[in-house]
Design a protein around this nucleic acid. Sequence first.
RNA 1: CGGGGCGUAGCGCAGUCUGGUUAGCGCACCUGGUUUGGGACCAGGGGGUCGGGGGUUCGAAUCCCUCCGCCCCGACCA
Length: 568
Amino acid sequence: MRFSKSFIHTLKEAPKDASLPSHKYLVRAGFISQVASGIYNFLPLGKIVLEKIKKITKEELDAAGAVEVQLGFVTPCELWEQSGRLAKYGKELLRFKDRKENCFVLGPTHEEMMVNLVRGRINSYKQLPLNLYQIGLKFRDEARPRFGLLRGREFVMKDGYSFHADEEDMKREYALMEETYKKIFSRMGLDFRAVEADVGAIGGSASKEFMVIADSGEDNIAICTQCDYAANVEAAKKAKRSEPSEVPEFSNFEPFLTPGIKTIEELKEFFHIDPYFLLKAVAKKALYEDGEEIVVFFLRGDQELQETKAMNAIEALELEDVSDEELKKAGIVPGFIGPYELGCKVVFDEELKGAKNLICGGNREDYHLIGADLAHFEDALFVDIKEVKEGDECPKCGAALQIKKGIEVGHIFQLGTRYSDALNATFLDKDGKARPFVMGTYGIGISRLIAAAIEQNHDDRGCIWPKEIAPFSVDIIVSNTKEKEQLDFAEELYGFLLQEGVEVILDDRPERFGPKIKDFELIGFPYGVIVGKGLRDGKVQVVDRKTLEKEDVDILNIKDYLLQLTKK
RNA sequence: CGGGGCGUAGCGCAGUCUGGUUAGCGCACCUGGUUUGGGACCAGGGGGUCGGGGGUUCGAAUCCCUCCGCCCCGACCA
């Protein structure tokens, strides 16, 4: 492609509404432009990258035996009613009516459509398994779209759904998809981790997220520094700790006057005790489908509550903070909350099972209880509700965990029969009995990957594209297009590389050197060839975008040099 | 949805508080010339419903009402 005819328009200044590097650079370099909140145009450069990502995804999925289809973007409300998601999905579903007053939604995901497509066509266990996928637009009317392509309302997603006769076969496919996803993201040159994820209210089955490691990520993930353990903090575990060597001795279980001493920090000072032996109470308001209640979560004093775990523990839809006033109204004494005779639901962290020699709140203003032994609460709910922190021990190997930020670019899920049940999609098994399909579902954020790649690979000059998804691998810069020798040489090199199948762009614009090299750096082509003054001495310069190092190359060798460089 | 901010040329902004020539600057764009290895220079030029509607006023980008859009923090969300 010739730069002069390519509809590439770079900007010197970033649009003011961009904040993240990927957003700024993708707009400045002319990859995308904003249409409305969370909706973007893909300009020629952006389109090339998008197609490359699609292509890699398709190749690997096809190789794994999945089959591509394309479902309607506009889907009838009826299906959503059948699955029960029309109400549940809420405002994120963009609904509208056609001229005949039929209700439709713009598909935010396609479980319903895909199940509907398969039911009636697959009738026998002999036709299973089946893995169908599509790469296409999704629309979710997000409350707050942001960060450019990272969280748009309209976005490109690959979504796949597999159908199986039994759980075991579904798990086999799930493992195959995990391997396939790893191949896909590796080919794209990304630093990523497959992490264990929260399965949430759907429950029961496993789920993994694929995270591109980047500081601007919205998810926190715990990664083992030694083994391959990695998990979203919403699901991360840590190894069981051994008790501190210094155990406090309490002769009795009794109330103790602690005037105005409320926080863990204050208690630690007051009693000169390791917070390990303090019982921390975190009160939350839990919302359920049919009401709400106050729940108190207890942890050791040196731990923090992980809200997603806590929410799952009591099967709540949501947890909200409670004010001191609300607590008092419920007869709870903020600052002095303990498990004894507390008039609400309590949950203990699993680490507290059988714990003793504790200090806990006395449920009475200015009193704590010392020498508490949780053996009294044997029948209470003990589950993992604590947040994993930097430096905690890995549950698999015991080495230190580190916490990093990640951008979720893929998610695989053992779905089970949730949708096939709801939509009555069944097949006949060997015994001629009708059974619901056992399903898996697998997603990749295709357009989000464009932004994620740049969040991970950029410097203060612009994008640094991984080679596999870069728009063009070589940018031939003609330093001065009025110098006939330069232009002729560049044209010849351009023709040669095209013929050799190298993805090359020729910067033949009648600009000076400055803007051209700036654009090279901003757009982030992997290699630049500067055809300029050095030509007199029989040299051109090759620039590596990543290192910004320049190397003089003899014009007699440049063709081989470039072929070598861009060879896959 | 709660809190904050913004809306003036394709992009970035000044002007608004304190109403008053023809609404200005940088970049980009067009013409001519010079220049040509790190976002050139000189001269000339084109481009504006000042987000929309309503109001106050002799007079509104500027004051008031209202609607819309966009961004940020949070809540939410795969």
